[in-house]
Each structure stands twice: as C-alpha cells, then as structure tokens.
C-alpha cells in the first residue's frame, strides 16, 4: 500500500497531500484538513450527514475513497459562506427554524445548494427530492423544506416578498 498524492480544490483552495488510498474522502476532509463541519452519521451512505459537493454534485463523503476525489472541485460546509457572512441558504435555515440539533444541518445545506445551484424555482417535490438522501431526526423536515423554499426566493431576489 503506497500513499496516493491527493490533489484537489477544496472550497476554492488547492490542496496537495499524501493520502493512504484506503482512506475515505470524509477522513481526509475531517482529519487531514480539519474541516469538521462535515459530519459522520453512519459511514455507509444512509444518512447524508457527510454530504459534500463533488464537482457540484452532492455525494456522501463516507462512500468516496479519497483518491477517487482527486482532481475534483470539492465544496464543504466551510466553503459555503462568504467571508464573515452567511450564504442565503444558511440565512434561510436560521430564519425558518430549520436547525435543531444541527448535526444534519451541514449536509442538508449542501444538498439544498446542489439543487439551488441548478434551479432557483424548485417545486416542493423537487425540494423534498433534493434532501431525500439526508436524514433528520429532529425537525420533521417541514421547516427544512420551508428553508429551501425561502432560500430559493432569496437567491432569486424575491427574499423580501416571502
């Protein structure tokens, strides 16, 4: 087993580090890069707490072997907000009361971002589908769905109308 050279762009910054190939993208993000906003909930792709964007698509970082993500553009929750501020999706989650324990929240926000990056007027069904790989045991999802709807409105410049 020889280390693999892991080069990628994480949250807009280039990274280049040796990684043992049996490590998961999740381990690299959390342990090597210290980006602990990405959570591990189950380790087998069933909860979505470790959702990150890989070239804009949502994936479970626990199911991606680190070398498979080499060369990709990776976005974690730490890369969502602008410096010193909040992304409209994050704002919307706070405003809608979509956060309770907060453990699913980073993954939820990234799943929502994957949707809203492509579609700023999603139907409720599209919103529910977009977060259908993310477990939440606290909220009942209602306020999460509301938050994504609100974020869509904010992002399409109708924030105040909602």
């Amino acid at each position: 087993m020889k280390p693999f050279r892991f080069t990628a762009t994480i949250n807009g910054r280039p990274v280049d580090l040796p990684v043992n190939p049996h490590r998961r993208l999740l381990d690299v993000i959390r342990d090597d890069l210290g980006l602990t906003g990405t959570k591990e909930g189950c380790g087998e792709g069933e909860c979505g707490a470790c959702t990150v964007l890989l070239n804009g698509r949502p994936v479970n970082a626990c199911l991606v072997l680190a070398p498979e993500a080499a060369g990709c553009e990776i976005t974690t929750i730490e890369g969502v907000a602008p410096e010193g501020g909040l992304h409209p999706i994050q704002e919307a989650f706070l405003e809608a009361g979509a956060v309770q324990c907060g453990y699913c929240t980073p993954g939820m926000i990234l799943a929502a971002k994957a949707l809203l990056d492509k579609d700023l007027s999603p139907t409720d069904q599209a919103i529910k589908t977009a977060v259908s790989g993310n477990l939440c045991r606290c909220t009942g999802y209602i306020k999460i769905i509301e938050a994504v709807r609100l974020a869509a409105a904010k992002l399409s410049g109708e924030g105040d109308a909602v």
């Binding site: 994936v59 991606v64 993310n134």
Partner: peptide, 9 residues
C-alpha cells in the same frame, strides 16, 4: 435509486 447522493455516485 437511493437518494441524490447515491445517484450522483
């Protein structure tokens, strides 16, 4: 199949 994350991968 699965959810969006599984489908992307």
């Amino acid at each position: 199949v699965g959810g969006p994350q599984i489908r992307s991968q």
